[in-house]
């Protein structure tokens, strides 16, 4: 475990906690894409199938359980909580799941490391995670007023991806033969999706104005 990996995991953890806290305390999910949250729940479910078969470390197991639990709680809040669900803007959050899920599934069936159920599901989760933020980014663009917590949530998610790339570069130089191109490509695509958002986030921070994405 290197410092970039730990920082990445912690950023990821904080992003999820920020979102849960926002929903739990202000009882609102305004500006949050249910589609993206459901895709993340699917990402974690398909990636962490190894919870049942392999043990890596206590840290690894606990973090996996936290990500699974938090992603399903967020989906539950938006769909079922009687106050929170009223703030969900269904008409703006129109991205269709299958536009994202199907291509990722096909790609995972075609391009994978090993043709086993677990390995294909793991590869699918990587492809899916790379694009799962799209419904959220579309929603941010449509929402004229992005509240601070939503902006921070997306910023932290992007930061987590960027830190993971630093982690891979570090591991590439320190661990012999540490390379897996599927992870690299999916990870780089995912990070690039945040580039535009980062640009406007830093602009709004620098100029001390409210974050707004151009239509």
């Amino acid at each position: 475990m290197n410092i970039f990996r730990l920082a990445g995991d912690m950023t990821h953890l904080v992003s999820v906690l920020v979102l849960l806290l926002k929903i739990h305390t202000i009882k609102s999910c305004a500006g949050i894409s249910l589609k993206t949250q459901e895709l993340y729940a699917l990402v974690f479910t398909t990636r962490y199938l190894d919870l049942f078969t392999d043990y890596i470390s206590l840290y690894n197991t606990v973090m996996k359980l936290i990500f699974l639990g938090s992603s399903f709680s967020i989906v539950w809040y938006i769909r079922r909580h009687k106050i929170v669900r009223r703030s969900y803007d269904k008409d703006q959050d129109t991205f269709r799941h299958y536009f994202i899920v199907l291509p990722c599934l096909v790609l995972a069936l075609l391009i994978h490391h090993k043709f086993t159920f677990k390995e294909v599901m793991w590869t699918f989760s990587l492809y899916l995670e790379a694009v799962a933020i799209l419904p959220q980014l579309v929603l941010l663009q449509r929402t004229r007023n992005i509240d601070n917590l939503t902006g921070q949530y997306v910023f932290l998610l992007g930061a987590y991806r960027a830190l993971y790339i630093l982690n891979w570069i570090y591991r590439h130089y320190t661990e012999p033969h540490y390379v897996h191109w599927i992870t690299w490509i999916a990870g780089i695509v995912q990070t690039l999706l945040y580039a535009d958002f980062f640009y406007y986030y830093f602009q709004s921070w620098k100029n001390n104005v409210k974050l707004q994405l151009p239509a």
Binding site: D9, H12, N60, Y164
Partner: peptide, 10 residues
């Protein structure tokens, strides 16, 4: 191991 994907990551 060149063939081993990064399964120790989250």
């Amino acid at each position: 191991n060149l063939e081993q994907p990064m399964h120790d990551e989250l």
